[in-house]
Design a protein around this nucleic acid. Sequence first.
DNA 1: TTTAGATAGTTGCATAAACAACTATATGCC
DNA 2: GGCATATAGTTGTTTATGCAACTATCTAAA
Lengths: 148, 148
Amino acid sequence: MPNNQFKKGELYSFITGKASTAIARRLQKKFNASGVNLTIEQWSVLYHLWKQDGASQQELCNASFRDKPSITRLVDNLEKLNLVKRVSDEKDRRINKIFLTRHAQKLQEESMRLAEETLNEALEGVPEDQVELCKAVLQQVYDNLNGQ
Amino acid sequence: MPNNQFKKGELYSFITGKASTAIARRLQKKFNASGVNLTIEQWSVLYHLWKQDGASQQELCNASFRDKPSITRLVDNLEKLNLVKRVSDEKDRRINKIFLTRHAQKLQEESMRLAEETLNEALEGVPEDQVELCKAVLQQVYDNLNGQ
DNA sequence: TTTAGATAGTTGCATAAACAACTATATGCC
DNA sequence: GGCATATAGTTGTTTATGCAACTATCTAAA
């Protein structure tokens, strides 16, 4: 018998992630208000490219927990917005490497500032050790469901 | 200066909710494998109707943290699947009350069992007090962003 | 009682996710 | 070399979200 038998009335928000969707909506509003013309999903792809410019689409899949079709279309849209460019790998022509344009580089500072601001608002009044514990629990949840 | 200044490398999974999406995906797979022919979103609407049959669309909006168009279309789809029925309120004809069909009532037990099973798998190895603390933090996050 | 404003719900449009089926290229084995 | 298989990416279809603009109905105030 599992130890963590859930009280029924609390299933819902755990499954639907109301906290993370609230964070995402708040950040989206900040983007809109600041003229950062990005969806959160587009931003999350750029986020990985800012860490590793030239990543392949497959690497973006792994980093962003999305499947290939999702990344194909996000890269499509980012390309339309002139934020990234597909460059076919010379050694393995199956691979597209995705490179940031100058325009995308300019968005990094402002959008990251807004993201940190959002998180600070979200976590206001929550002691740091509780934040850490919460992150650890969520990581464990992820590992439990994907590790095997 | 806020106390919770986030380490930059950790912004991502908090905003994109990788834990809750992992839970939702696992539950969806269980639904598919068990012949429960529902999307997680449809299930989340039924979930509230099982608690309060005859709720209005507006009440479903509030309970499920969705906007009106989302609920309109989810109810459209649930109606197509013969799982709910719109009934116009007699006293206030702006209001649609949503009622479960017998078919939907039959889905409750099995789908809730699968949802609890999923959460138990997700939380395996996480002590109960840490689960409680994590839920409290996520609730606080939600309140911080929506309360005011 | 008429009219302004609020509330409930719908529709159109753009973006995104999940899944299956597909193409193109590379690798490994005979 | 040639074929089976694996890997990288694309396309089609269905479902869902967010926003703005819309219709219908109700309420309150002049």
